[in-house]
């Protein structure tokens, strides 16, 4: 039974890695700045999910805090980048 769990964790990691590659392609090749910001948003969410999967693989709860910090700071950075695209400066 643990064999099946190990294989499913590996499969989930491969799928999330492909999703991160798609987001990274959109960051590198996005035609405009807002496309790159959407790709960045998708990239940090996928990285957070990959950290949760690492936590299941190793059986330690330490990865949970890292995922929570990534979720918090990723939201803040997306809002700041959108604000920069809107106004040209972050703090008015």
């Amino acid at each position: 039974m643990s064999m099946m769990l190990a294989w499913s964790v590996t499969t989930a990691q491969i799928l999330l890695g492909c999703a991160m590659a798609c987001a990274a392609f959109r960051i590198l090749r996005g035609p405009r700045a807002q496309d790159r910001v959407v790709g960045f948003d998708s990239l940090y969410v996928n990285a957070m999910l990959l950290l949760l999967t690492f936590g299941i693989r190793t059986g330690s709860t330490l990865y949970f805090e890292a995922a929570l910090i990534i979720a918090l700071l990723g939201f803040v950075s997306t809002v700041v980048l959108a604000k920069f695209l809107l106004r040209g400066e972050v703090i008015e």
């Binding site: 039974m1 643990s2 769990l5 964790v9 999703a19 798609c22 959109r26 790709g39 999910l49 999967t53």
Partner: peptide, 27 residues
């Protein structure tokens, strides 16, 4: 780990990763 939690964990994990990959392919 007993059988039922392992199966539930595996199903939720793979389906969540697959849905995320579908969203990234749409991106």
């Amino acid at each position: 780990l007993s059988a039922l939690p392992a199966v539930l964990t595996a199903v939720f994990l793979v389906s969540g990763a697959a849905v995320t990959l579908v969203g990234a392919l749409g991106l």
